[in-house]
Design a protein around this nucleic acid. Structure first.
Lengths: 150, 150
DNA sequence: CTTTAGCGCGCAACTCGATTGCAATTCATT
DNA sequence: AATGAATTGCAATCGAGTTGCGCGCTAAAG
């Protein structure tokens, strides 16, 4: 594992909050000169600690009104059926996350759609067409009081 | 809702992939001159579609070896007990997401820790000390085959 | 049909930040 | 104390960011 000191941690924290602040400002905030700060950032990128940067988009402004976490259980647990399911999920733009999890079911998915009708459509016409799906439990997100993941 | 045309969508898509590419490169990719492209980005920011930018950090490089999604049910559903729970969760650095969801339980949390022992510690010493927590169901993430959320 | 107004765009000039080479400083080891 | 390695700061250069101005296109009004 790469050695991360306190200044690196500060840099990571700052870039988690605002990845497009100028390097000059970032350097000020972590107490380095701009060039030393930039080299730190470059090293964090090169070593793979920082894997990229992304825009944070307010999906509700784009019409996303409904976020759903759902668990999916499969009736067949062969490698082939798992892979077929994951391939289908990879093709579904509504699904923004797919995790293989421990427990009574195989997957936890995060789905983002415009409204509950669109979710029903997804549920019926996407999930409903996949072979080996034996259980689906949906949880609509009413509020996200914490979202600090980066 | 702000009007988003196809070029705006292209911009959003590109900035979801690499938010620190130069504006010159972004402009090339969406087929505008750099200044027109920049104004589009500025407008997407001003209007709140883009709420910010963040670094994507590979947590496993920082020692995070264990991601857990867990559902939490409360025994009391008063406003006061809900708020107390959320305040406690806001103070727990291991919890990176907290969603209020429909269904038999109240919350879905995402927790990131170094290893399963650290999760047990969190489970016992953080969750275990909170009043009104009546059920906890943990799912360890074994793999995330899709993660396109932005 | 013509004219006008509004919107989005491109061009170009200026400013400032990004980047990198070199030298200095600091820290750790012998 | 000396040496080597790692980190940092300085400064110069280049390129990108930013913005004002004018142009072109489209739609609406006369």
């Amino acid at each position: 594992m790469t050695t991360i000191d306190r200044i690196d941690q500060r840099i990571l924290h700052e870039l988690s909050r605002d990845a497009r602040q100028t390097n000059v400002k970032l350097a000020e905030q972590v107490g380095l000169s701009p060039s030393a700060c930039l080299r730190r950032v470059q090293e964090l990128e090169r070593s793979g600690v920082i894997t990229g940067y992304k825009a944070v988009i307010d999906r509700s402004r784009l019409g996303i009104g409904c976020v759903v976490y759902l668990t999916v259980g499969l009736s067949k647990h062969t490698k082939a059926s798992l892979e077929a399911f994951e391939r289908a999920i990879a093709e579904a733009p509504e699904v923004v996350e797919c995790h293989t999890i421990t427990g009574a079911v195989e997957y936890l998915l995060r789905v983002e759609v415009t409204d509950i009708g669109a979710y029903k459509d997804f549920h019926t016409n996407v999930l409903g067409t996949l072979p080996h799906v034996s259980s689906i439990t949906s949880h609509i997100v009413m509020d996200s009081s914490k979202s600090t993941r980066s």
